[in-house]
Design a protein around this nucleic acid. Structure first.
Lengths: 335, 335
DNA sequence: TTGTATGCGTTATCAC
DNA sequence: GTGATAACGCATACAA
């Protein structure tokens, strides 16, 4: 059985409140009593019950990380980086995976509303609906969004400008003489994917190229779909000279298909992938990628959360980070 | 402000205890009062405070996942699978990353001892020392180990027989005519890595080959070290005909080095990697791998934890799962 | 400086 | 079937 404040108080011959003060470094405790109390606490390896403490102090030092997709390597990287920040600030992380399921999302909001966590960071997913806003009103907005939008400008938000990333990728390819650029995307109902598509269209149009719908392949983001996307295009007689792929797994699948087909990268097809992480780093040849600033996203989001946890109300900003275009072999013009 | 039991009791004109019973589906509440109470609860979107509930019931429905290494893709996969199991069983997961740091491990044990979580699963890492045992005595062993050993047979444990995996990999290579097999390993102070090395040595000796120390390259597991391992061997004049690599990132680094050197797989060097996941799946040519049974590890461990949480004492087993050797292109004999 | 009393939101044990 | 009341472990306002 775990030792409690009361036990220590009894052993030290003082009141519980004195023990509490002594152990929490509050002033108003005599040097001797403090010493005695600390000694006993250490001897019996006292650990304050966090539930009891949370119940009275309304603070648990835990935050929920609500992930829309655990298969997304960038999101995993964001989690890792938030974990680092949290550790520094003495916060614990609860990992929640919704798989894009709104019902699960709601149920995870319960963590917030039942006082189990102090705040939450939502990573990815669709537009934040009314149910989230309701929760927010109750809990006075201890929520931060990463790569996700709310229809009210209510939560501090950190976004990646995916559209701009794709836009620059297109521009890079055009500059290198590629003309027929295919876009392999995930589900366009997902906000971020739609945004990527818009960036693609914007760039295409800007440079006076007709947007060809056939050059867009929408997938469910799984690896095999990247593979199939290539086959579908080729078999359909649509032969692009380059690909931009909006997700890691799709990229890997596509590269596999290209190689299986006996084609060379970038000689036959240039490829620009998404995400600069262990996944894409394994691709051969070295892959040009649109790289999400995962560390920065994590850091900004966590700091925003800390701020609203400390009731800095002035902080309801939306920040937009620009992804980096990292140019490697897979998009070099060799012809 | 969140509504509480007391509020509902007042509104319904009954006692708190009645509300509690009604809302927890306990018998001994009149049908009418129950209806009225539930109605009010729903109307005001009542959420029981989990802290208060946990304080009295000694149950939080949360478990800690204590990871020794977030860079290890297999471990991430185990986390994903435990998350799935936890979700099914209405448990929440707290993610803790120790980076192999014992101090952090101790501090995470605090979660257990301060009643924040019901149990914990340790994934990977060194031998479990005395401090963990101490904790276990207090908390009556709500701990399960994955790929980790305790010097007392105290915690339910699920292990991967890495040694056997490597053993069979060596055998496979020998059967295919390879004779000079290099082993690229991680830090041999880590239990699992040592075990892999032992499997290697066992196989080598068994088939009457002299163990050459120079064919063993010990690394820190980072990708670049896999790259360097190849260079080191070649430049050192040690030319193996095949490689067994004990970690994903090392594998990717090694493959990169081989290709950069202008060599072909498996024509010049056969390669057997570790881990059958998105990481190694990106390698070209398709990689023969020693595959850890991540789903099974996760499932068994979680079920064991559930059992000891329910005080099934008879369950202190150590189960050993055998990894699968998945044979693909990278280890085929083509010469 | 120290002790007393109260409350945090629930559940559980008694009575009635 | 229902209602007081204690208890969980801690923090804090107030008294002494």
């Amino acid at each position: 059985m775990q030792i409690t404040l009361k036990d220590i108080a009894r052993m030290a011959g003082v009141a519980e409140s004195t023990v509490s003060r002594a152990l929490n470094d509050k002033k108003g405790v005599g040097e001797n009593t403090r010493k005695k109390i600390i000694e006993i606490a250490e001897k019996y390896d006292y650990r304050p019950n966090k539930l009891a403490r949370g119940l009275v102090s309304k603070k648990t030092n835990m935050i929920a990380l609500i992930l829309s997709d655990m298969e997304n390597q960038s999101y995993i990287d964001i989690v890792k980086n938030i974990e680092i920040e949290a550790e520094k600030n003495n916060y614990q992380i609860i990992l929640c995976n919704t798989n894009g399921n709104i019902e699960k999302e709601k149920s995870y909001l319960n963590l917030l509303e039942s006082n189990q966590v102090d705040g939450a960071i939502f990573i990815g997913g669709g537009l934040v609906g009314q149910y989230l806003l309701n929760a927010s009103f109750k809990e006075s907005n201890k929520i931060v969004l990463i790569n996700r939008l709310s229809d009210e400008g209510f939560f501090p938000t950190v976004l990646t400008d995916y559209g701009d990333g794709i836009y620059r990728a297109v521009k890079h390819l055009l500059n290198n003489g590629y003309k027929k650029i295919a876009l392999i995307s995930g589900d366009l109902n997902i906000l971020t994917e739609e945004e990527k598509f818009n960036g693609y269209k914007r760039a295409i149009t800007k440079y006076n190229i007709n947007f060809e719908k056939k050059l867009l392949v929408e997938t469910n983001g799984k690896r095999i779909e990247g593979y199939n996307a290539f086959i579908k295009l080729i078999e359909g007689g649509i032969i692009p000279d380059s690909f931009i792929v909006t997700q890691e797994l799709l990229t890997i699948g596509l590269v596999e298909a290209v190689k299986t087909g006996g084609y060379f990268i970038p000689e036959d097809f240039a490829i620009i992938g998404s995400g600069d992480n262990i996944l894409t780093s394994a691709v051969d040849p070295p892959l040009t990628v649109i790289a999400e600033p995962v560390e920065e996203l994590a850091e900004l989001a966590f700091n925003d959360l800390i701020k609203i946890l400390n009731n800095d109300k002035e902080n309801f900003s939306i920040r937009v980070l620009t992804p980096q275009l990292i140019i490697r072999e897979s998009s070099k013009r060799n012809k």
